[in-house]
Amino acid sequence: MLSRVAENIYWFARYIERAENTARIVTVNANLLLDLPKGIAPGWAPLVDITGANALFEEHYKDYGERQVVRFLLSDERHPGSIHSALMAARENCRTIRDIVPREAWEQINGLYLYARENQQKGITKTGRHAYLRALISGSQTIVGLLDGTMLHDQGHNFLRLGRFMERADMTTRIADVRSASLLREAEELRPFDTIQWVSVLKSMTAYQMYRRSEQIRVQRGPVLRFIFQNNQFPRSVRYCVEHARSCLGWLPRNEAALRVIGRLARNLDAAELHRLDQIELHAFVDDLQLGIGDLHQEIAATWFPPPPVVEETAA
């Protein structure tokens, strides 16, 4: 398989996953705010914090109001992490791998992109938002299912899964980091609403029900952190993503260096005693994880992807 094609498949999967996760965090935040008393609610800024795009946001918007943040995350073409940009990038990547993925996958991503674009306005209003985001999430899931169920499970499929798990692991650490930080900040007044907020963390990953089944304990910080970071059965936990990324790497040629990097990542993850970490230590831990995920990406790119172009080119 050509390195360029492998890279396109990998990014295709990442962008689909990114669009889905962004739709999830917007949905959950909207619900959370309805449950919290006005005045003490953390508002919409944490969503921008999660994506790490604060500088860009502040360049274009005056304040972190609902409309502004939602527009930024859903439809802003200037924001490379917006759902609009992610779906467009996924579509462009898919265009070049049309001989690798089944035709239906192309039709699906094409349809999803067009739906997202044509219904943007609906997504920004309070009343239309829920249905819009649900359609995006289920559209992304359809693509993932379609590919798993119909494409050859060869090298290309490994890169597809690799992209998906890398993006998902990254997003899960971001959600945990930002949410738990904001939980701490207003500790005093928000204490009675702690549970609600941890429930919202779980819900943004569709993890609430699974947490209940798996942990059989009330929702609280320690077990929630353990569940979303270290559970090896929940498909959006960091541990699960890392383990499955590792198995994808296992099938690829020349994988020694990448396996070393991911081994280090897995060991750090397993060794952490999350319930003992205070907020600052947790943040440092998450920082470390994200650096590890970044290193892994660098290693994957260096081993299997084409070298970056020498001349200036528009990025994939």
Partner: peptide
């Protein structure tokens, strides 16, 4: 490459 041969970059090298 330096051997004047043309190569494509693949996942296998």
């Amino acid at each position: 490459a330096d051997d004047d041969c043309c190569y494509m970059r693949t996942v296998d090298g």
